[in-house]
């Protein structure tokens, strides 16, 4: 008798667990399929773009991709709001962000499904070159050195680097970083720029933006140089931090998507979709929505 009760309990627990794992995500409340042929709307009542409609004409693409039927995107999900780990309804492979939303539409317009591969930022271009991912989208600044190794699509976002410091700082421009300990994220644009500066006492190359800001909060570095959008996302999380801009030292830069040098077919197809998204205002709208 006792045994039977225990067995019933065990089976019940397993059944509830299976139900929770497999079926709970299915009946997402507020989720309605708002995609129609060639148009995109905010699909979820919580979606910042809910109700807006953007027309995108599908583009013919019949080249090969790393995974058949999928557009595989290499990214570094540590760069909010462009890409960050999330379980939101819009996340793909548990990564959400501006880049993921844009890539999702590109994949759809190309007749593919998006797949996201999260990796080290420095590993993205080698992965694109090796063909393990089709496209590198990671808030990646178009630079001459990178462009030697991969093709970049049309620029889709204009950004710049900023300095994050504690409120009591005496930093007014990038020149004031001389003699300070400066935190950067390894291999990010900020790392490349600060590495070329003279007179910085020490460069601390953290693994992610969050960690470098943590170093700043803990007083182990005096300033952090990183892209503006993640900087603003992070100082919203920590009190007592400010951003300092220096447009002469940190020129404005363009984000592009990296595609293998010999894969011109994908490059042209992606560019065709990107241009539509720039023209119809989707990129502006989605960026504004994620940067709120």
């Amino acid at each position: 008798m006792k045994k039977a009760i225990i067995w019933i309990l065990v089976i019940a627990i397993i059944a509830v667990g299976v139900w929770a794992i497999f079926f709970r995500n299915g009946d997402d409340n507020g989720y309605e399929n708002g995609e129609e042929n060639g148009t995109v709307t905010g699909m979820h009542t919580n979606d910042p773009l809910y109700g807006l409609v953007f027309n995108i004409t599908p583009v013919d693409f019949d080249g090969e991709t790393a995974n058949d039927g999928f557009l595989t995107m290499g990214t570094n999900a540590d760069f909010a709001p462009f890409e960050f780990a999330s379980n939101s309804p819009w996340s793909v492979d548990r990564v959400d962000g501006i880049d993921v939303r844009i890539a999702g539409l590109i994949a759809e317009a190309l007749g593919l499904e998006l797949r996201v591969s999260d990796m080290d930022f420095g590993a993205i271009i080698p992965a694109v070159q090796a063909g393990t991912v089709d496209i590198g989208i990671a808030g990646m600044t178009i630079t001459a050195e990178r462009a030697e190794n991969v093709n970049f699509t049309t620029a889709y976002y204009t950004a710049s680097q900023v300095i994050i410091a504690r409120e009591d700082n005496e930093i007014e421009s990038a020149a004031d970083l001389v003699g300070l300990r400066v935190g950067v994220v390894v291999n990010y644009t900020g790392d490349i720029i600060v590495s070329d500066m003279d007179g910085v006492t020490e460069i601390i190359r953290s693994n992610s933006g969050v960690e470098s800001v943590l170093e700043l909060v803990n007083g182990r570095v005096d300033a952090v140089v990183i892209d503006r959008a993640p900087a603003e996302a992070m100082i919203a999380q920590h009190q007592g931090l400010v951003t300092i801009e220096d447009s002469s030292a940190f020129e404005s830069e363009n984000y592009g998507m990296a595609i293998r040098l010999d894969n011109l077919e994908l490059l042209n197809a992606v560019n065709a979709v990107l241009r539509q998204m720039i023209d119809n205002g989707y990129i502006d709208a989605i960026s504004a929505a994620y940067m709120m």
Partner: peptide, 23 residues
């Protein structure tokens, strides 16, 4: 130790790869 931003041999290789993009 490169997990806490110490520039060891492994991290050095990663930094070079980030500059040259050679896999």
């Amino acid at each position: 130790i490169s997990f806490i931003a110490v520039q060891d041999l492994n991290r050095a290789a990663v930094v070079i790869r980030g500059r040259t993009f050679h896999a």
